[in-house]
Simulated scan of single mutants.
Amino acid sequence: MEFTLHPQLAKDSYILGNFSLSQLLLINDSQFPWFILVPRKVAITEVFQLDSNSQQQLWSESSHLSETVMNLFKGDKLNVAAIGNLVPQLHLHHIVRYKADPLWPSPIWGKLPMVAYDFEVVLQIQEKLGRGLQDFEPLTVQKKS
């Protein structure tokens, strides 16, 4: 079998590129800088299902992404979570939070309707991330219809 992104993640996000293990997504909600790492492995729902090298690689990618997005977006806090109640495919959320954001300090899950990004802003975010991330291969971002 070949890796396929879960349909809900594909619907809700832009695919920005790949690390050696994970695909990097940007959730299409301009209210929060919200990124997701999805290990490109088939039928994995939990971190412990990855072999030890892949686990280490995932945490390395997550840590590097975390530092980069906090530097880029100057957040007050970074929320990192692997919940998976609605989307079983293993994925790690990285959400930059601000004390002035509309939901601070509460969780953001399902509280506000999503506000789509302008496509040009998505491309700018991808470009900035590409300059700051090592071992990252940007992909051609597909515009949402």
Rank of each mutant, 00 (worst) to 15 (best):
Ser20Trp: 00
Leu21Tyr: 10
Ser22Pro: 10
Ser22Gly: 05
Gln23Trp: 02
Leu24Met: 03
Leu24Tyr: 02
Leu26Phe: 01
Ile27Ala: 09
Asp29Lys: 07
Ser30His: 04
Gln31Trp: 10
Gln31Leu: 13
Phe32Ile: 11
Trp34Cys: 07
Trp34Met: 05
Trp34Glu: 10
Ile36Val: 14
Ile36Asp: 04
Ile36Thr: 11
Ile36Ala: 11
Ile36Tyr: 02
Pro39Val: 06
Pro39Asn: 02
Pro39Gln: 02
Arg40Asp: 02
Arg40Ala: 08
Arg40Phe: 01
Lys41Gly: 01
Val42Asn: 13
Ala43Asp: 15
Thr45Asn: 13
Glu46Phe: 06
Val47Tyr: 08
Val47Asn: 10
Phe48Glu: 12
Gln49Pro: 02
Gln49Tyr: 02
Gln49Thr: 01
Ser52Val: 14
Asn53Trp: 00
Asn53Ile: 05
Asn53Asp: 10
Ser54Met: 11
Ser54Tyr: 08
Ser54Ala: 15
Gln55Leu: 03
Gln55Glu: 07
Gln56Gly: 10
Gln56Asn: 14
Gln57Gly: 04
Leu58Glu: 08
Leu58Thr: 08
Trp59Asn: 05
Trp59Tyr: 15
Trp59Cys: 00
Ser60Glu: 12
Ser60Ile: 00
Glu61Gly: 11
Ser62Lys: 08
Ser62Cys: 10
Ser63Gln: 14
His64Asp: 09
His64Phe: 10
His64Ile: 06
